[in-house]
Design a protein around this nucleic acid. Sequence first.
DNA 1: CATAAGGGTTCCATTCACTGGAAGGTCAAC
DNA 2: GTTGACCTTCCAGTGAATGGAACCCTTATG
Lengths: 139, 139
Amino acid sequence: MNIGDVADLSGLPAKTIRYYEDIGLVEPLRSANGYRSFRQSDVHKLAFLGRARALGFTIEDCRSLLKLYADTDRASAEVKQIAEEHLDRIDRKIAELTEMRATLSHLVDACAGDHRPDCPILADLAMEEGKTRTARAAD
Amino acid sequence: MNIGDVADLSGLPAKTIRYYEDIGLVEPLRSANGYRSFRQSDVHKLAFLGRARALGFTIEDCRSLLKLYADTDRASAEVKQIAEEHLDRIDRKIAELTEMRATLSHLVDACAGDHRPDCPILADLAMEEGKTRTARAAD
DNA sequence: CATAAGGGTTCCATTCACTGGAAGGTCAAC
DNA sequence: GTTGACCTTCCAGTGAATGGAACCCTTATG
């Protein structure tokens, strides 16, 4: 199969598939004309990668997961550990964003958003140390 | 003031401050010895940048916000629009992460995490089109 | 036979916001 | 005079692609 067909099947852009070959995640064969020739197993691997990436696993996680997938003797604990670490990363990120969201949303609510120049958002960003952050007074 | 002092005061690494000069966010003076010489206003600007970045604003947002801050005639609506767009980005990101979290957490829960090779996490990632995603059966 | 459309190939640059490191200049203290 | 803490510039790398240029291959049509 050529790269275009694989792109359609796996949902990954051809560019991304070439990149994945570059970094050693897949190793398609080559046809006589120099075109990449993907086996069924390559397509399967790429779909696996697509799903793992969609869950936010890093490329290095994906590399590990593929290796574990290929090793039918692996302990599920190894896989679970990778997934749990990733889950923690996600939780930390969500917490960080949620905190940003809270602060920002206070500020946005406090801002009239009209033609006048007074703006609590800028006031907060420009705030001097030691002065009250009005928009956060409720915290 | 030299860069080290400003780094301490603003909480930004010296490296980052140099970078901000590079991309035109601050323009410190220079002493005779070639050292950067920061005015009070530069320190203030950098602290502003630190807070805006901590709220997740992009560098380009920061550039706009600084410009609006300097313009005492701006309409607060302009600031609010930037903040609201950013709030939307945050919300979209949180939603995306929350969805990832849900799927991943299903999978992690379903995985025994022991010495045996059976692993619902890998099974899901490797899933063929058309087969049931056991770990998502509840969706 | 020419050529045009629609594949494919490589290689280089760019994104975002820094961060690390090398090689070297400056300054204050001992 | 030399140590050590500063400072300087410049170059490279991060993650995970993405965009584009320049060029090759295949197939269909005039």
